[in-house]
Amino acid sequence: MVRVYFNPDYTLASPMTSETIKVENLQHIADVEVADLRAAFELCQNSDLPWTELPEVRPEAVVANGTRSVAPGDVLELDGEWYLIASNDFQKI
């Protein structure tokens, strides 16, 4: 399972690195029943229907009716390890 977190501190004007992430500020928004970061990221993209409605996703109540797609600056947690979503990869925090 991959836990998905929005990062309220991230902005395009001041992108963060794995060293500047404040884990305590992250907002847990969903759990995704996959065992791979890339698969979780791809599932957490809005397409024909909101990603929060997919059967693999267990959204928190705050986003249960839909939300933005997961994007660079957000964070995924897999097996107790935290990863910043970067523009082309995942950076371990």
Results as ranks from 00 to 15, higher is better:
Phe6Val: 03
Ser18Thr: 08
Val70Lys: 00
Pro8Met: 02
Phe90Pro: 12
Pro55Ile: 05
Leu49Ala: 04
Phe6Pro: 00
Leu84Tyr: 07
Gln27His: 11
Ser47Asn: 12
Pro8Trp: 04
Ala39Thr: 14
Val62Leu: 11
His28Gln: 07
Asn7Val: 03
Leu78His: 11
Leu54Lys: 15
Leu37Met: 11
Ala30Arg: 07
Pro55Ala: 03
Asn88Met: 07
Ser69Cys: 04
Ile85His: 10
Ala35Phe: 13
Val2Asn: 01
Gln91Trp: 13
Lys92Trp: 00
Gln45Thr: 07
Leu78Phe: 11
Ser69Asn: 04
Val62Arg: 11
Ala71Gln: 15
Thr52Pro: 03
Asp74Cys: 12
Ala71Ile: 10
Pro8Ile: 00
Leu37His: 08
Leu78Ile: 15
Val23Gly: 00
Met1Phe: 01
Pro72Glu: 13
Glu42His: 07
Gln27Trp: 05
Thr11Tyr: 02
Thr11Gly: 02
Leu43Ser: 09
Ile93Pro: 06
Asn65Met: 06
Pro59Arg: 08
Gln45Arg: 12
Leu26Met: 06
Gly73Val: 09
Glu56Asp: 14
Thr67Pro: 06
Val2Ser: 04
Asp31Glu: 14
Met1Gly: 07
Ile21Val: 15
Val63Gln: 00
Asp9Glu: 13
Asp31Asn: 14
Thr11Phe: 04
Leu49Tyr: 08
Gln45Trp: 04
Asp48Ile: 01
Met1Ile: 03
Asp31Arg: 10
Glu42Leu: 14
Ala13Thr: 02
Glu19Ile: 00
Tyr10Gln: 08
Ile85Trp: 06
Ala35Ser: 15
Asn88Arg: 09
Phe6His: 13
Ile85Phe: 11
Tyr83Pro: 10
Ser47His: 11
Leu43Trp: 06
Pro59Asp: 10
Ala39Lys: 15
Val4Thr: 03
Arg68Thr: 08
Val2Gly: 01
Asp79Asn: 14
Ala35Cys: 07
Ser14Asp: 08
Leu84Glu: 03
Leu26Val: 03
Ala86Gly: 14
Asp89Gln: 12
Trp51Gly: 10
Thr67Lys: 04
Pro59Val: 08
Gly80Ser: 09
Asp9Ala: 13
Gly80Ile: 05
Glu33Ala: 15
Phe41Ser: 04
Met1Leu: 01
Ala71Arg: 15
Ala86Leu: 11
Leu12Phe: 10
Ala40Pro: 01
Tyr5Phe: 15
Met1Val: 02
Ser14Met: 06
Tyr83Met: 05
Gly66His: 13
Asp79Tyr: 09
Tyr10Asp: 02
Ile85Tyr: 10
Arg58Tyr: 06
Val34Lys: 09
Tyr10His: 14
Trp51Gln: 06
Leu84Val: 10
Gln91Ser: 12
Gln27Arg: 15
Phe6Tyr: 15
Thr67Trp: 12
Phe6Met: 05
